[in-house]
């Protein structure tokens, strides 16, 4: 291999290498006024795709997501069966056809805990071990 080809080869390998993601768990959290203690995986998917928009007591569900964090990668692939790009495209489709409003996006566990704690009807997710503050932890059935 010519020396000039090596950087090109390394660049190509870097482009096609699989995206790494740290192993770990995520925890679902919700505002303390949310009238549930547990959700199924299917419920979580319906909620984060905007197909379930109200809680059983009629209150509006407010979705909070994380922007390109490890917790977000784990959550989206596990529960929503989409990667971060596909999830972003899904919501852009809702926005550009007038069907929905994209979820609020946050860059850290701390920010999402704060938002969920202070927003009635809010639900989000954080890395396992994060202090949920005034938010409550939702069990997954």
């Amino acid at each position: 291999m010519k020396s000039g080809s090596i950087p090109v080869f390394i660049l190509l390998m870097a482009l096609i290498a699989p995206v790494s993601s740290s192993a770990g768990e995520v925890v679902i959290i919700a505002n303390e006024n949310v009238p549930i203690l547990a959700l199924t995986g299917d419920d979580i998917k319906q909620i984060f795709l905007g197909k379930k928009s109200t809680w059983d007591n009629g209150d509006k569900i407010v979705i909070a997501v994380q922007d390109r964090t490890d917790a977000s990668d784990i959550f989206l692939t596990t529960y929503v069966t989409k990667n971060a790009y596909q999830y972003g495209i899904y919501w852009k489709k809702q926005v550009f056809t007038g069907r929905g409003k994209a979820p609020r996006s946050f860059s850290s566990d701390h920010e999402i805990v704060q938002f969920v704690s202070q927003t009635p009807g809010a639900i989000g997710y954080v890395s396992s071990g994060t202090d949920a503050g005034k938010a409550k932890t939702i069990a997954v059935r």
């Binding site: 109200t54 209150d59 509006k60 926005v95 550009f96 007038g98 929905g100 409003k101």
Partner: peptide, 18 residues
């Protein structure tokens, strides 16, 4: 090119234009 404006005057109502 396109631009859209959308709002939710209440929990169940959504209005918008593109």
């Amino acid at each position: 090119f396109g631009i859209n404006f959308a709002g939710e005057p209440s929990d169940n109502i959504r209005m918008g234009i593109q």
